[in-house]
């Protein structure tokens, strides 16, 4: 399947989704006014990928900022990953947060408690 490679903008994150390696990356900032439009192709890609996923899917989320409009879309991404895991595939989610950024750590914990995949919380120190 086609991979997705989007470069980040001041309002949208860098996205890499590679079906051949099973690596999914979302990095940067996600603050568009209308997030549904931005995330729709990503969720659709995961839907397609979930039909024939790799044995191991590795997800790296490293967000500097995200708005509440994005938060629901990010949950939709995680729900697709949860479904992949439920179908007995391995899914690893790495949640990166900047040193001392308690809000971002807590945001990761919120997601972790909603979906049933343990997150690896990784503190990034400058």
């Amino acid at each position: 399947m086609e991979s997705i490679a989007l470069e980040g903008t001041p309002k949208t994150p860098t996205v890499n989704m590679d079906g051949a390696t099973g690596i999914v990356e979302i990095k940067g900032r996600s603050i568009p006014e209308n997030s549904i439009e931005f995330y729709r192709p990503l969720v659709e890609w995961l839907e397609e990928y979930s039909k024939e996923p790799q044995q191991l899917t590795t997800v790296n989320i490293q967000l500097e900022y995200f708005n509440t409009s994005s938060s629901k879309c990010i949950l939709d991404v995680f729900k697709k990953l949860e479904a992949i895991k439920k179908a007995r595939n391995e899914v690893i989610i790495n949640w990166y947060y900047e040193e001392d950024d308690e809000d971002m750590l807590e945001a990761g914990e919120d997601y972790e408690s909603i979906i049933r995949i343990p997150f690896k919380m990784i503190e990034v120190v400058d």
């Binding site: 603050i31 006014e33 500097e64 900022y65 708005n67 409009s69 001392d100 950024d101 308690e102």
Partner: peptide, 20 residues
């Protein structure tokens, strides 16, 4: 950096709320 981030985050949210 954390204070900056907090202010920026809240600003994004409040301005987008206003916009909508």
């Amino acid at each position: 950096s954390i204070t900056k981030k907090k202010i920026y985050n809240i600003l994004v949210e409040s301005l987008q709320n206003l916009y909508h």
